[in-house]
Design a protein around this nucleic acid. Structure first.
Lengths: 215, 215
DNA sequence: CAATGTGAAACAGTTCACAGCA
DNA sequence: TGCTGTGAACTGTTTCACATTG
């Protein structure tokens, strides 16, 4: 049987739920009790009907004429996203980017504590970064198992990315975020997302050019 | 009149062109003269008809029975993307992330040299990072003008992001890449793209949960 | 009666199937 | 003959319009 407990969430919705979650957490911190789709949309930068469609997929959690209860909605979104419990993350590559990501406290606050950091360079190994000791790349599998890491981040040069992905998969990691440019192939069962800085800049350059052309 | 010289490129295509470009440059370095849609698709991780649709939007540059001429295609994609000439980039925020981005040589190689780096903290100002001296945030506008920066990157904490975006726009930057989490509003005419690490991890967590559920 | 929930319409993007050309 | 170029079908997503209800 296919997944069905949560009735099949479209990818576009999955991509927006974390944004709503962030807005909701802010509202909860401000002691706001209920929120309308209009207000939530404003915090997320989308339109209200979009918010309602997304939330209605999770279930009919709103009250007509009133809105959504902030705390309750936070719990529901966390449940759907699988963010009920913290998910330990391992970062491969302790260069500038790996260090930046390790320092980035937002991960831990958001439920993604960095619990492992490995690198292959002898200079990096043993260094302590944001309270984490850099382990040798060869220990990747041990680090993953010891800390129950379920998410892996590739922060190495492109040349190493494929090999690193292979090792992450071998270590039992099935969800990978790749910062290295270029193609990385993974087995069907693995989810790989990528953050491609050069591509982002190219897209901006395209729009920049469109703008100039229309002046 | 609307843009028309290049006959309206769909966003999805714009997002893939840089990937093709990277693959093509690699092929050119390997002295490959022509490439089929099938081969190019393999380097980009998409399917061949997708490549053909995308390229046919730019013009009919392929030879039936043969494929596409690598060097020529590189030029055409660069032209469409507006990547014919290097576009100077300014980075706001010289913390871990800003430094990582400044060091990242891929930008310069890809035609996006970092020509400005500003920060508000007295300790950071004056430091030299990858050959760039950190200037005070107040000098942003001067730095942008002196170096003809056309792209801006926000690498500050979320709390400063909106203010930084406002200042970038005031300095004449209309294309912004934002690494800070949270909503940043910009005028209609400005293109803002964001890289949201927490969101990426949430999306991975969702798929991780789906996987577990189906086991 | 203000705000949700949701069919229906419109739009965007992908895949299919094959005609057309070097 | 092999590979491109593209209409047509399909799938996914957003927007619209409005009935529904606490």
């Amino acid at each position: 049987m296919d997944e069905a407990l949560t009735p099949l969430v479209p990818e576009a919705t999955v991509a927006r739920l974390p944004i709503y979650l962030r807005g909701l957490v802010d509202l909860a911190n401000d002691e706001v009790g209920t929120v309308s789709s209009e207000q939530l949309a404003a915090t997320a930068g989308v339109n209200a009907e979009n918010v309602r469609k997304d939330l209605s997929i999770l279930g009919s959690y709103g009250k007509r004429g009133v809105g959504y209860e902030v705390d309750f909605l936070i719990e529901q979104i966390k449940r759907v996203l699988g963010a009920g419990v913290p998910i330990p993350v391992v970062i491969v590559g302790a260069g500038n980017l790996g260090r930046a990501l390790t320092h980035y406290g937002g991960f831990a606050a958001g439920g993604f504590p960095v619990k492992g950091l490995v690198d292959s360079s002898p200079e990096a190994i043993g260094q302590e970064i944001a309270g984490i000791t850099v382990e040798p790349f060869e220990k990747l599998s041990d680090v993953v198992k010891k800390n129950n890491c379920a998410l892996g981040i590739i922060a190495t040069p492109a040349s190493a990315a494929q090999m690193v992905a292979d090792q992450l998969v071998a270590a039992g990691i099935y969800s990978i975020l790749n910062f290295a440019p270029g193609l990385v192939a993974v087995p069907e069962a693995v989810t790989l997302r990528k953050v491609d800085l050069a591509t982002e800049l190219h897209i901006l350059a395209f729009h920049e050019q469109q703008r100039e052309r229309n002046e």
